[in-house]
């Protein structure tokens, strides 16, 4: 189940397409926003809501990297590792974060606040190195600016 507000949003989204199933990607974002990750109930519920089979929803969730099937930290720190960012020092940024948060890649800090991830090109190559905190972009980051950023995330 989704909140009333999100149910309304989903109704509107479904109306954009001739088949309900097309709404699965936007619907999964709504579920993830509400529950922090895509839960087993979400998968079952959205299958029924969008005329899909449960395994069809599961297939979709596991294909796309922006969905998580298990709990993640409040802040997903996604450091770009691809070429343009690598040339501008992405590796140092990633290592710095690992040390600072005492947390490896694809791990969550014990307090549940941060999940650290390396991701592929974010489309900010000319503003490298870059990272994303949940959906927010941070461009031309340095070890100093990353320190400030971490402090600002409560």
């Amino acid at each position: 189940m989704l909140s009333q507000a999100n149910e309304k949003k989903l109704d509107e989204i479904i109306s954009h397409y001739p088949v309900k199933r097309s709404a699965i990607l936007p619907a999964l974002y709504l579920a993830q926003e509400e529950h922090g990750y895509v839960t087993d109930e979400d998968v079952k519920y959205l299958a029924q809501r969008l005329d899909m089979r449960v395994n069809e929803v599961e297939e979709v969730v596991t294909f796309y990297t922006m969905y998580s099937r298990k709990p993640v930290g409040k802040y997903k720190l996604q450091v770009c590792r691809t070429l343009s960012c690598m040339l501008m020092g992405a590796e140092q940024i990633a290592e710095h974060l690992e040390h600072k948060l005492k947390c490896g890649m694809n791990e969550t800090t014990p307090d549940g606040k941060f999940t650290l991830m390396e991701v592929e090109c974010l489309g900010y190559c000319d503003l490298a190195p870059c990272l994303q905190v949940n959906f927010d972009y941070h461009e031309k980051v340095t070890t100093e600016s990353v320190d400030k950023l971490i402090e600002s995330l409560k």
């Binding site: 990607l25 936007p26 979709v60 796309y64 922006m66 991701v119």
Partner: peptide, 23 residues
């Protein structure tokens, strides 16, 4: 319509599959 983090969905026919709610 939002994608969800898959480079292959830039390939036009994969994009159409994705838009239809599939992998």
């Amino acid at each position: 319509h939002p994608g969800a983090g898959a480079y292959i969905c830039g390939e036009e026919t994969a994009l159409l599959e994705s838009l239809e709610g599939k992998r």
